[in-house]
Design a protein around this nucleic acid. Structure first.
Lengths: 256, 256
DNA sequence: AAAATTGTTTCATAATACGAAACACTGTTT
DNA sequence: AAACAGTGTTTCGTATTATGAAACAATTTT
């Protein structure tokens, strides 16, 4: 999305830039709104939207505003990357979310970042604004820390060489030394916590998901508001999450 | 996808035509294969793929072949159309599939067709080549017949006026008169069967999913090979499917 | 080794995308 | 009621970009 040079198709880039506006969570956009958000001329935007509408990639609602369409949903379901992980995590995640009444995530370490493959929300809990398929920093999320902690020393040193530990909050770990200590503790305890390191008010707890060779493949995390978090909850949270993780592990023994 | 006229953006159309090739289920395509399949010049195809790759809409594997990429997965997950139905059907569908050991579908009637919103496959059962998000004829599928049978007379007469009942197999219902009789029976019995009407060798059984006003919202179907189907199975199949449908109904009482 | 197949690059030009301006419509303010 | 503000849609001249034939590079098959 940054390799904008002259041999790439500019119309196609523009069309996807428009679709990417929807990543912010707002479901309904007008032509002029999208033009303003993307910086494109409104006639260009209108024409691209008309094209996308003809393809059912976007749909118009009764107010002539645009929402994403079913063809995009259909195409999105064809993506085979991490397909087995996504499939096998689906039900366990929903079960954990229902049990624990908070938002549950499942993700992997990819390109030195957490990639969220699945998410299940409780009807009761805090809605967290992560998108399935999106990336987040590893060093300040419980999920990321658990994935790093159980990775090889190569992965960790590559990570520390390439990622700058910028602060999100006053509680964010911002030195390699502190992060290494934290990862060592995570590895010892078998789980990680994010105590408002990514976002003030947000607490996460995460555990690893292993293949049969005890290599970490993925992680499961539970996110909730700090106001609902108590140290006494950790043990019961962990046992619920662990049960779900074991369910996933039963299906991914050969994953590498 | 048929309104090709001069004010639509032809590059964007071409890019999505390329992506649509993946709908046939093959996950890995080379440049020349895609060019041949779409009919576009191979240089054009290569350039569009390079653009899509820069957007992470497609990814190249080690053999320089293309697979669909994670950004498409991310965008697909943003689609809000039928979102609650998709969410609430997910776990019940997986439970049915595990129980019944066949492929399970969940769909709605849209534009006089079945739109598949969810699908769950058993590890053991027949893999059916439907795509989530895709459409199928209603008159020759159990799911479609159950959706029609419990719809209003207006919906049914509109359907019969606009859809031509073409034969898929020698067992397909091809007259309005026969279809109306079938739909009456479906409504009386409370479930529908597709006895090789869509595809020889394929049997489906389906039941409706209602909202609190007893309006049909969606349907659940189970598909299996005719070799495994026995009349004695119907009752036990129905009770398993019904249990899943009730789970879904508990969440969609207000859906209309 | 030669032929066939693949993916990638080059270059001239035809075609298309672009955007300013106008239009049409709806809702709000004076 | 008229004026204004906001929206989505259309028009038209032209600048820009997309196109495709051909060549090149690499790999696989015969």
């Amino acid at each position: 999305m940054e390799k904008v040079n002259k041999e790439l198709n500019l119309s196609v880039i523009k069309a996807f830039k428009i679709l990417e506006v929807y990543l912010n969570g707002k479901e309904v956009w007008g032509v002029r709104e999208l033009a303003k958000k993307t910086g494109y001329n409104k006639t260009t935007t209108y024409r691209l939207l008309s094209t996308l509408e003809s393809l059912d990639i976007v749909q118009k609602n009764d107010d002539d505003k645009y929402i994403l369409g079913l063809k995009l949903f259909e195409l999105g379901n064809l993506v085979s990357v991490y397909k087995s992980l996504r499939t096998f995590s689906r039900v366990p995640l929903e079960v954990i979310a229902k049990d624990i009444k908070e938002t549950v995530h499942f993700g992997v370490l990819k390109n030195n970042q957490v990639l969220y493959l699945n998410k299940a929300e409780s009807e009761l809990g805090l809605k967290v604004s992560t998108q399935i398929g999106s990336y987040q920093q590893a060093y300040c999320t419980a999920l990321g820390k658990v994935l790093l902690a159980f990775s090889s020393a190569n992965v960790i040193s590559d990570y520390l060489r390439n990622v700058s530990l910028e602060a999100f909050t006053s509680k964010t770990i911002t030195t390699s030394k502190d992060l290494l200590i934290e990862l060592e503790q995570v590895k010892t305890k078998g789980y990680a916590l994010d105590m408002e390191e990514l976002e003030l008010g947000l607490i996460c707890i995460a555990i690893p998901v292993f293949n049969k060779n005890k290599e970490v493949v993925a992680g499961v995390s539970v996110s909730g508001p700090s106001s609902r978090f108590k140290s006494e909850n950790i043990t019961s949270y962990l046992s619920i999450i662990k049960k779900g993780a074991l369910e996933i592990e039963a299906h991914i023994r050969d994953y590498n």
